[in-house]
Structures are given as structure tokens and as C-alpha cells.
């Protein structure tokens, strides 16, 4: 067992533990804070995969934007019903069973695949070919259309979010 593997195991354990706290936290606020730790752990794991770009994006987009957005939303909606009674549904055990089932099924199926045991080597530096990728994203014969669709989706989401969250003067409440 080498150093990288130990790092992986530690980070994975911390990440999954904090994920467990997200699932179990009594307050939504606490769940959101644990989520930040989970996302950070995933960012480190992405770095161990040599996906440096995505590790950075993970920190910027997920922790910097999404998690903060969630925290704000929690604070904005904390009201009458928050933190009263159980935070989970009473059939949580059924959900646990289902989630465990998904995990088990995925594992059994993956385990039958020979690639499961493959050791991931260190890649040469040029493997994460950012320049090529950037060019491919705007190449009509490669990813231009998915890329454009994604940007239009973001734009639409932004407009929709502003429209939905806007409080109209004279509107309801």
C-alpha cells in the first residue's frame, strides 16, 4: 500500500462520513455545512485522478457557488416549520434499503467487469489536454452542439431562476 492509496482511503472515509452526516443532520443548515466538506473531499479525489481542472472547478462551482447558494436558501426559508418534528420521513428505513440495494447491485455488476481491478497509473502530463479540449468544444464536428446547448441551458436556467425568485410588487405575499 503506497502513500497515494492511503491518502485516497483517508479522504474517501472522511468524505463518506461527512456525506453520512449530511444525510443524518437534524438541521438543514448543518447538512449544508457537511455538504461543503463532502464536496471538498470529492475535489481532492478528482485531483488524485489527475483531473486537475475539474478539481478546481469542483471547488469553484460546487463549493464556491452551489453550496453557498444552498446556505443562502436555507437561511432565507428558515421559518415556521423548520426544525420541528422529525427531519426524515417515517419510512426512512425503506429508503435506506433501496439506497443500499442500488449500492449492492452496482457493486455486484461492476465487480464482474475485469477492468474493476485495473490500477490507475500516473498519466503523462499532456493527458489532460486542455488546449485540445478547448478547441474541440468549439469545433462543429466535435462538441460544439452539446457545448452550445449547455450554455443555452445555463442561460435559460439563469433567466428562470431570476424570474421565479423575483418578488413581484403587488403579487401574492
Amino acid at each position: 500500500m503506497n502513500a497515494l492509496q492511503i491518502i485516497f482511503l483517508v479522504v474517501a472515509a472522511v468524505t463518506l462520513a461527512s456525506a453520512g452526516f449530511v444525510a443524518g443532520a437534524r438541521r438543514t443548515m448543518h447538512a449544508a455545512l457537511w455538504l461543503v466538506l463532502t464536496l471538498l473531499g470529492v475535489a481532492i479525489l478528482l485531483a488524485t485522478l489527475q483531473a486537475g481542472f475539474f478539481a478546481v472547478v469542483q471547488v469553484l462551482v460546487y463549493i464556491g457557488a452551489i453550496a453557498i447558494l444552498i446556505l443562502f436558501a436555507v437561511m432565507l426559508t428558515r421559518g415556521l416549520t423548520e426544525e420541528q418534528g422529525a427531519v426524515h420521513h417515517r419510512w426512512w428505513w425503506l429508503a435506506a434499503l433501496a439506497a443500499g440495494g442500488v449500492f449492492a447491485v452496482a457493486l455486484v455488476i461492476l465487480n464482474r467487469w475485469p477492468g474493476f481491478q485495473v490500477l490507475l497509473e500516473e498519466l503523462p502530463r499532456e493527458a489532460e489536454a486542455m488546449t485540445d479540449w478547448g478547441l474541440a468544444l468549439v469545433d462543429p464536428m466535435r462538441y460544439l452542439i452539446p457545448f452550445e446547448v449547455a450554455s443555452v441551458l445555463l442561460l435559460a436556467a439563469m433567466v428562470a431562476a431570476i424570474y421565479l425568485a423575483m418578488s413581484r410588487p403587488g403579487g401574492q405575499s
Binding site: 420521513h89 419510512w91 425503506l94 429508503a95 433501496a98 439506497a99 440495494g101 442500488v102 447491485v105 452496482a106 455486484v108 455488476i109 464482474r112
Partner: peptide
């Protein structure tokens, strides 16, 4: 959430059936 749970249970059942039948 109930609908979602139902769907997940369906997926798990299908997965288990797949494992039992194919694997």
C-alpha cells in the same frame, strides 16, 4: 419523494433480477 422511492425500488428490483438471471 414517494414516487421517487417507488421508482428506485423498481430499479433495484430490476437490477437484482438482472443479476439473478444473467450473472
Amino acid at each position: 419523494q414517494t414516487y421517487m422511492l417507488t421508482a428506485v425500488i423498481g430499479v433495484v428490483t430490476a437490477g437484482v433480477a438482472f443479476i439473478l438471471l444473467v450473472v
